[in-house]
Write a protein that binds this DNA or RNA. Structure first.
Lengths: 152, 152
DNA sequence: GTAGGTGCAAATCGTTTGCAGTACA
DNA sequence: TGTACTGCAAACGATTTGCACCTAC
């Protein structure tokens, strides 16, 4: 899903929400980023060009997107209050711990399904969902860290 | 690792911490549970028998155990402020969303390693760590839910 | 004896709520 | 026009900190 202005407006209206300038601005800003963001990150990135938008509205838009299933949480790195716009079906994250970049990968990995079956057999659990995140350095940050620490 | 009193004392002292009665009490209570707990859960379970132990001390002991690598976080269910005592090497969690029970399973699953290799090849990421949690109903809670909702 | 640990109260942080004014449909 | 939305300020809950007293070593 691409979040251009018209798309955002139609998604909001289809779900009975008003397409206010604040919502459009916040969602466009959020969708622009390929990194995970906290509410405060998002607020900060809006502050310069849109000082009139308050933190409370950022929280409310994130909450709204959550109800529409358009955000997903990022768990790695301590707290779980980091968000990434969700443009796909159930998927997993590959995170760069240095620059915060997020890459999605699909959930229907045969390896993962096999593992889940094995665990079900062994434990008798009725598995409903799962969380999987890989954390490391993206190619660019990895390159930079090599320049600083050649041995790593 | 079994957390009997002597073991706890020696771990604390080996790392330069004092073995105070409060610490021993809190760690024993924590180690007794096979569920994930929030700091408040742990505080509540101590309150009856040890009303003299304050919430602040619970936080400080959890922090101490964290620094010693003896707790792990549970991510599922929204916030990440749930803890489980860590008695093993790097591992993953199978959580019951109803009763909170946690079962560990080892990390060296060939399926998972294959998947990680594949992702490394495709993306060029230098993967350092990962989070994997399966969430569902344990056999007992699953049985109970069947009695209430036979179709599920 | 002393450094480290504890408990209280206050401070702090992130997040949510009440409310009056505003603007989209 | 009416209802949903916004922004401010205040409230709130979880966690951390300052400080005086205490205790394990």
């Amino acid at each position: 899903m691409k979040f251009n202005e018209d798309k955002i407006k139609s998604v909001l209206r289809q779900n009975g929400y008003k397409a206010t300038p604040q919502r459009l601005t916040i969602i466009k800003e959020f969708a622009k980023s390929d990194r995970f963001l906290t509410p405060a990150d998002l607020y900060d990135s809006l502050k310069n060009n849109h000082p009139d938008i308050g933190m409370v509205t950022v929280y409310r838009v994130l909450d709204l997107l959550d109800r529409l299933g358009l955000v997903c949480k990022v768990h790695a790195g301590g707290d779980c209050q980091k968000y990434k716009i969700n443009t796909a079906e159930h998927h997993h994250h590959l995170l760069c711990s240095h620059c915060g970049m997020v890459i999605n990968f699909p959930c229907d990995e045969p390896n993962l399904e096999e593992l889940m079956e094995k665990i079900t057999d062994e434990t008798g659990f009725n598995i409903k969902t799962h969380i999987l995140e890989f954390v490391g350095l993206c190619p660019r940050c990895n390159e930079q860290s090599r320049e600083i620490n050649p041995e790593s």
